[in-house]
């Protein structure tokens, strides 16, 4: 998760308007859902791979790693898509030959969809999407909570990591009993520290004129017409290619 966040903040396309990246990912996602999977799916995966790796400059290995997690879930679920259950005479389980095709469809469709989201998560920090959410009508308190949680997760992780290091240095995780005890202590300690942190943060925010509303301005992004045109033609191109391949296969 930290690696994803790091890339999201430092990739080559970081300074592009989040809406542009959102349009590309969202548009492809729609195509992945709407068009026939066996032909469109691979095209979308290829395009999103190129956009992420060649475009935004994310190492291919990182892309693979991020894809691997949902990918693994998908692959382990293939058997269950292929098996057919028959309840007519008791319970009988059989491999159904017709099951392969829909299973392949589901896998390709899902992988295509995952590749779209992988692109978005690797190129756009979650927090850049918040103004978009606000514009899409998500209520202010929810958005403010997201802002705060996003920041505090990292403060908390830092704390947890350094506390764990300190425990490891004193043999805190040598053996099962020690590990359990150390983990317990760590959790209690983090809880207490979080409360203290919350209190100090209240002071810090009050010093900055906090009056119950977390209003901030985001850096100004500029939408590039050039890139928008490319994205839209890419979407149309992928749709056309997918449909043409599908027609040729029939």
């Amino acid at each position: 998760m930290l690696a994803i966040d790091r890339w999201a903040w430092t990739n080559r396309w970081r300074r592009y308007h989040p809406a542009e990246k959102g349009l590309l990912a969202g548009g492809m996602l729609l195509l992945a859902v709407a068009l026939p999977a066996p032909t469109t799916g691979p095209v979308i995966i290829a395009v999103m791979f190129l956009a992420t790796v060649a475009g935004a400059g994310i190492p291919a290995l990182t892309w693979l790693r991020v894809m691997a997690l949902p990918g693994a879930f998908l692959i382990t679920s293939i058997p269950f898509l292929v098996l057919s259950l028959d309840f007519s005479s008791g319970l009988s389980v059989a491999l159904s030959p017709q099951g392969w095709e829909p299973a392949l469809h589901v896998v390709l469709r899902s992988l295509a969809a995952v590749s779209c989201l992988t692109f978005l998560t690797l190129t756009t920090p979650a927090i850049d999407l918040v103004p978009l959410l606000r514009r899409l009508g998500v209520p202010r308190p929810v958005v403010e909570m997201m802002l705060l949680i996003y920041r505090l997760v990292f403060v908390f992780l830092e704390r947890a990591a350094s506390a764990r290091q300190a425990q490891i240095a004193r043999q805190g995780y040598a053996g099962f009993r020690n590990s359990l005890r150390s983990l317990g202590l760590l959790v209690t300690n983090l809880f207490q520290r979080s409360l203290e942190r919350a209190q100090r943060m209240e002071t810090g925010l009050a010093a900055r004129g906090f009056q119950g509303e977390l209003r901030v301005l985001t850096p100004q992004w500029t939408l590039s017409q050039f890139r928008l045109i490319i994205i839209i033609s890419l979407l149309l191109g992928v749709a056309a290619t997918g449909l043409a391949l599908d027609a040729a296969a029939l």
């Binding site: 920090p125 927090i127 802002l147 403060v155 942190r197 943060m201 810090g204 010093a207 977390l214 850096p219």
Partner: peptide, 8 residues
């Protein structure tokens, strides 16, 4: 860290 609450 007690004062910075925002992501960027």
């Amino acid at each position: 860290d007690d004062q910075l609450f925002s992501a960027n």
